[in-house]
Every structure is written in C-alpha cells, then in structure tokens.
Design a binder for these strands. Structure first.
Lengths: 132, 132
DNA sequence: GGATTACGTTTAGTTACTAAACTAAAAATG
DNA sequence: CATTTTTAGTTTAGTAACTAAACGTAATCC
C-alpha cells in the first residue's frame, strides 16, 4: 500500500524540479548504463515503446536527457543524460543511499545478508507471479 | 520495477473475473474487516473519497460488494462483500498464502524472522519517505 | 532485391485517479 | 433550540500515464 502511494507521488531531485516516479526511473536506468536506446528503455522499464517516446519527449523538453543518432544504425537513437539529468540521477542515488544507511543502522551485517537473500527470493516469486 | 508492473496488471480471482489491483486491494480491505465505511476505505487505501465512490460503483456493478445504510448515521454507507466478492477475497488470500509458502520453503524460521523485522524497518523508512 | 523484421513515432482511447463544488446529515456552539 | 460548522458521500471535469495499433523508415535475411 505504501509503495503504491509512493509510486504516484512526484518528488524533487536537485535543480531538476519535480519528477514523477516514471521520470526518475527512466533517468535512473539511463544514468546506470550511461546511454540507452529507446527499445532498451522500454524493455527495462516494462512499458511499450510508445510510452518511452512520450516519456523521453517530456524529459527532453525539461532538458534532462538528449537524443543523438546511432552511428551504425540510423533507426536507433541514443538517449543520454544532460548535466541537469545527471544531477537528478545523483540526487536520487544519494536518497537511496541515505535510506540504505537507515536500514544498516538498524540491522546487523548478518541480518542484512538474510534480508538481501529474502529480497532475491521475493524477486523470483514476483517474477513467477507476473508470468502467471 | 517488478512491483510497479504487477500493480498495473489485472488478475483473475475465482468466478469474479479479471480484477485490477485497485479492485482487489479494495476487496481485501473489506474482507479483512468484514464491513467498511467509504471514508474508512479512502484512508486505508490512501485515495480520495471521490476515488472510492467510483471504485465501489464499479465493484457494485460487478456484484462484488453491496452498500447498505448505516443504522445510526444516515450519511454513511456500510460496504460489505457479496458471496462473489468473498470468493474473490478468499482466492486472493489463497494466492498470498501460496507465495508465502514458497518463501517458507526457501528460508529457515530464523531467516523469516529477520525478513519480517527488515520489512518492518523498511515500512517505517518508506513512511518517512512519504512524509518527505 | 523483395520480403520480413526491428526501431521509433503518432494517434486515439483507456484507466485510475485528483480537485473542487455540491448535497445532506450530524455535531458543536452559544 | 436555532445556527454554524463539520463530516459522509457523490458528482463532474480534468489529468497523468499509460496501451494498442497503424505508420514510416531503416536494417536484415534468404
């Protein structure tokens, strides 16, 4: 229920202004890899390519990402972060780290290991769930 | 990312046909308590009362819930599950149990305790997150 | 070199909400 | 007890974040 609510609420990251969860997940994926193709983003985020076009249009309008042509394949476009986009990415990473630290203060090292193992299992369970 | 995707995908529960995540969360809340007021549902699910009116209208049209007048307060309406609604509730509970069992086969009793403790902590962390 | 596949875009439609105005009933005030 | 205020739920119009399907264009595959 909490995650549901969180995943609807925009949040401010650095100078980039308010970003929706979809926005920041997109920026996160790009930032993690450096650059991304539209189709890679679609499969990574689990949405259609049409959705990615719209998302990237929006982020480009906000000057958070840029599209550049692929040198070998002129159908593809390479998406990367602008300086402003990188700032949002870093701010988001910092936030994650802060929450991870908060977890670490309340759990021992062994407990964290168990937690991570549990999350892995949960991950496969949820994956099964998605594929019915 | 997985949870995001799961929380968009409808799923079949018993004879009730396809239910969206919002549908099944609503049914779950009612089933857990037996009956619920509209306003209780709104705060439990973290949405506006307008959203609840629309949700319950939809579930009522599908014959999954009923509205009945509150004996003392004629502004309120008491929402409860029909037999079909209860069937969906039970099917959903069974699904949860099945996934919990799947976790249990892969974790020791102590590990489950640690996992539950971790989830509690994560819960408060996410709660903080929501309140900025 | 023509058919097929893949990349990205466009468009129209859907879903799941919110915000705000509203009705009516209950509770508080004085 | 009359009046103001609060509370419960509904209605309506608008929005965000998608999807599905058709499209244009470029690459790949016998």
């Amino acid at each position: 229920m909490l995650l549901r609510r969180l995943e609807r609420q925009p949040h401010t990251f650095g100078q980039a202004g308010k970003l929706t969860p979809s926005d920041i997940h997109t920026i996160d994926a790009i930032g993690l890899e450096g650059t991304m193709l539209m189709s890679e983003l679609a499969s990574r985020l689990g949405v259609t390519k049409g959705a990615i076009t719209q998302l990237i249009d929006k982020l480009q309008a906000k000057a958070l990402v840029t599209r550049s042509p692929h040198p070998q394949d002129s159908r593809s476009s390479i998406v990367s972060l602008t300086e402003l986009g990188k700032e949002a990415y870093v701010a988001h990473e910092a936030m994650h780290l802060a929450y991870y630290e908060q977890l670490r203060t309340q759990l021992s090292e062994q407990e964290i290991e168990v937690f991570e193992k549990s999350i892995d299992i949960l991950n496969t369970v949820l994956h099964d769930m998605l594929n019915h």
